[in-house]
Nucleic acid binder design. Structure first.
Ligand SMILES: [Mn+2]
Ligand SMILES: [Mn+2]
Ligand SMILES: [Mn+2]
Ligand SMILES: [Mn+2]
Lengths: 158, 158
DNA sequence: AACAAAATGTAGCATAAGCTACGGATAATG
DNA sequence: CATTATCCGTAGCTTATGCTACATTTTGTT
């Protein structure tokens, strides 16, 4: 429902971009902010499915505490978010049991991990040291649209 | 106070990065997420001082409603945030009066606008179309550290 | 000056994401 | 098998950012 609301806003703004009347330079200027807010709303889900996939790959299972240490937050914060991602059909979770990805979550994780890998490799190819690239890519990844992602790939393998 | 807390966490993690014991690969991995959360906490302030500077430059004054239209949010959201930024000495504001930048806010705005301009120019130089570059740079700018910013500048003017 | 319109503030609600404190469940160890 | 340690859930608090509805102030127009 949060998603529906956000999408309706974007659709409404699309119409403003098409029909070109008088004072919608302001409207058009607001579109990047709306889209950025949308992307921030997805950010937690993206980081969590990515982390679950990585942790399972590394250690065989993913516990709530693994995620808490991964993100440096309390286990309570993780529990609540896991519950929401379960409602969104991205994760399986039962009380006191390890967390796992649903098929939908696994597909999502695959896309997100690929994009993150491209962004990280791109920054390093650009000459950024690994430590800075790891930090910056952790935030940048969520704001890289398809066009920018394609451009980064072109830069990496010409 | 939120800032002090966040900084104390970062300092604490620094020590973990220096002293290399056993299970702090997990700790080290959590640093990018902590720093990204920090950057998100600054994001609103950055976007607002930037917007205030732009709007004043374009139209002579910046009203609450100008900001509301700029960001596509309600004037109530703007009012509350302006109040906080006033507490942080970034903005001047009196009831029913236009908003202005403090000297501190103006310096901040200068840095933020320059960084945003570099990121936007960089994406376009990379081959991203203007519309996508505008959208993506609006989010990416807040996650570009000094090293990445320097690398982008090198790419732009060699 | 009076009235209407526009801008701004206030009250009250929602959701997301942090936290501590405490209690219950599971797992490891004797 | 009993005990302890670890893990996890729940209750309750906080801050940030969205919203609508309504009140107030300022501004513009008869
Ligand atoms: Mn990631
Ligand atoms: Mn991330
Ligand atoms: Mn921005
Ligand atoms: Mn971001």
């Amino acid at each position: 429902m949060a998603t529906e609301y956000a999408e309706s806003i974007l659709l409404w703004q699309q119409t403003f971009l098409i029909g070109g009347c008088l004072k919608e330079k302001v409207k058009a200027r607001s579109v990047p902010f709306s889209k950025t807010r949308n992307r921030h709303a997805n950010e937690t889900a993206e980081d969590y499915v990515e982390a679950v996939a990585e942790i399972i790959e590394e250690s065989g299972e993913c516990r709530v505490l693994d995620l808490a240490r991964h993100f440096n937050v309390s286990h309570v914060t993780v529990s609540r978010i896991v519950k929401r991602l379960q409602d969104q059909q991205l994760l399986y979770s039962q009380p006191y049991r390890p967390v796992d990805l649903t098929p939908k979550g696994a597909k999502f994780a695959k896309r997100v991990r690929e994009r993150h890998a491209v962004v990280l490799a791109f920054l390093m190819a650009l000459g950024v040291d690994k430590s800075s690239a790891q930090i910056d890519s952790e935030g940048i990844e969520h704001h890289v649209g398809p066009k920018t992602l394609a451009a980064m790939k072109r830069f990496l393998e010409p």
